[in-house]
Computed example of a mutant assay.
Amino acid sequence: MASTRSLHWSLAMKEIAATRTHRPAGLLAARGLIAATSAKRRPLVVGDTYDRAAIMAAACAAARNHQARYGGTWGEALSVTLKATWSLAKAARAAKAH
């Protein structure tokens, strides 16, 4: 005889929601700050290559602001701002390609 397994949909949906990646606090604010300040002073993409020094400089400047606003460690702040900076750089590179 085959064994039956009961499924509780509410528990299953909660587990699915828990496994999804959540946006870290301040990611959108960091992206806006970088787009408004650092990325305009020094472009993140030169030609068709990423300017890694400009990306790191923009992320470090935004990380100081992020850490002051949201607290947390330097590593957490730098992680959030690097994600935001790289997303802006990728968007800039895609915009230049078209």
Rank of each mutant, 00 (worst) to 15 (best):
R42M: 08
L88K: 00
G47I: 00
R41F: 09
L82A: 04
K96Q: 15
H66K: 12
A2C: 06
A92I: 04
S38R: 05
A29C: 08
M56K: 02
A2M: 13
K96L: 15
A97W: 03
V46A: 10
V80P: 01
R31L: 13
G71M: 15
R23A: 06
L78W: 06
E15T: 10
S3F: 13
Y70G: 01
A57D: 11
Y70R: 04
H8F: 12
A77D: 03
A54P: 08
A91Q: 13
A18D: 04
I55S: 00
A58L: 01
Y70W: 13
A63I: 05
G72W: 09
H66F: 08
R52C: 06
T73I: 00
H22K: 14
V80W: 04
Y50I: 12
R52V: 12
R23V: 06
V45A: 06
G75H: 15
A25M: 09
V46E: 03
A92Q: 14
A68D: 11
A92Y: 01
A61V: 08
A95E: 15
W86H: 01
P43Y: 03
A63N: 05
T4Y: 11
A35V: 03
T73V: 07
T81N: 01
R93Y: 08
I34W: 11
R41G: 09
T81E: 09
P43A: 02
R5N: 09
T73Q: 12
K96D: 08
A29H: 13
R20Q: 07
S6D: 12
L78Q: 14
A54V: 07
G71C: 12
R93C: 06
T37N: 14
R42A: 10
G75Y: 13
T85M: 00
W86Y: 06
A2F: 15
A59V: 05
R52N: 10
Y50T: 01
W86K: 01
A36L: 05
R93K: 15
L44E: 03
A92P: 00
L27C: 02
Q67F: 08
A77G: 02
R20F: 06
A53Y: 07
A29P: 03
G75A: 15
M1R: 05
A68T: 10
I34A: 07
A18C: 00
A2V: 13
D51G: 05
A61D: 15
R41D: 11
R41K: 09
L88N: 01
V46W: 02
K40E: 14
T81I: 00
K40P: 09
M13Y: 09
L27N: 07
L11H: 12
P24N: 05
A77T: 01
T85S: 03
Y70C: 00
L27Y: 11
A54H: 11
A77M: 02
K96A: 13
I55W: 03
T37K: 15
M13Q: 13
A2T: 14
A39S: 15
L78E: 08
A12P: 02
L27T: 03
T81R: 02
E15P: 00
T49K: 15
A61Q: 15
R31Q: 14
A25G: 04
R42F: 10
A58D: 03
G26K: 07
L11K: 13
A94M: 12
A39Y: 11
T49Q: 14
M13P: 00
A89G: 01
A35T: 05
S38A: 03
Y70K: 02
L11N: 14
E76C: 04
I55F: 04
A91D: 12
H98K: 06
